[in-house]
């Protein structure tokens, strides 16, 4: 821990690193790993700030900066993500890449950085991938079919706190795709089940629960995601700690739909 007298807002230690980064011009060309050296990386920096620094350096050297997706940089938008030393979102548990800080690395380390790898997530450029397939899964049924207006008073249907809490646990999914990237089968079951579970735990979600499960699972299969064979890699890398219990619940919903 980089604490000194209870404060951590100093400039931290400085690291020199070797980076092995996947470079791929676009979806049509083949990619390859390239090596870069970077010095003066403060342990207080976030991982993406380290990449910003690398890119400024590459631009000065006349090279093409590394493309990577990111937006909020506070772990909630789900836009960022990469395999770091083989782990989705890097070494820290329950942490997105943007919230991973360089204090998790040591001076002299070699860090490999690769994009999510899955048939359903084609590479756009370097570390940026196309996750439109996740959109399709949600569009196939990840909602309660209500239009705007005409809804009952918010307190008309009491919801037990435990059910609301379970729904919230599942609803925290940020749709980053780490679960797919970590899964040997590139399965989207953790992602899909989180939405199914969120809505199945609420009274408002009951009416469509079986149809929802059937439609979302069909979409998931058609989009080229694999199946779950209980490796548990998805849960291990999930930055929001979404649990595999959701997959069990999804399977129950699916059987319900098939009956």
């Amino acid at each position: 821990m980089a604490t000194l007298n209870g404060t951590s807002n100093g400039h931290g230690k400085m690291l020199s690193l070797t980076l092995q980064i996947w470079r791929q011009k676009n979806s049509k060309t083949k990619g390859r790993m390239e090596e870069y050296k970077i010095k003066g990386v403060s342990t207080e920096m976030s991982f993406l700030e380290m990449l910003d620094m690398l890119n400024e350096q590459l631009i000065k050297e006349g090279k093409d900066p590394v493309a990577f997706d990111h937006d909020c940089r506070e772990g909630i938008c789900g836009m960022c993500g990469a395999m770091v030393n083989g782990y989705a979102h890097g070494p820290d548990e329950a942490t997105t890449l943007c919230q991973t800080h360089m204090r998790s690395f040591s001076d002299g380390d070699t860090i490999t950085i690769e994009p999510w790898r899955a048939k359903a997530f084609p590479v756009i450029k370097d570390l940026a991938v196309d996750r439109t397939s996740f959109e399709r899964i949600i569009q196939s049924g990840g909602y309660i079919s209500v239009g705007t207006g005409g809804t009952p008073d918010a307190n008309a249907i009491p919801i037990p706190k435990e059910a609301a809490d379970r729904a919230m646990d599942a609803a925290q999914c940020i749709g980053c795709g780490a679960c797919v990237a970590a899964c040997p089968n590139a399965s989207a079951m953790l992602f899909t089940s989180a939405k199914i579970s969120h809505l199945a735990n609420l009274p408002q979600g009951q009416v469509e629960r079986h149809l929802r499960a059937a439609n979302m699972i069909r979409a998931m299969d058609e989009l080229g995601f694999g199946n779950c064979t209980n490796h548990g890699e998805c849960e291990a890398v999930c930055p929001k700690e979404i649990k595999m219990e959701n997959i069990a619940l999804m399977n129950r919903e699916y059987f319900g739909a098939m009956m």
Binding site: Y143, I144, P152, A154, P158, K161, L202, Q204
Partner: peptide
Amino acid sequence: DQCVAQGVPFAREYGGLL
């Protein structure tokens, strides 16, 4: 009202109300 109908899991008390 709209958000609850959509399934937004707002915090609730033990009695089930918001």
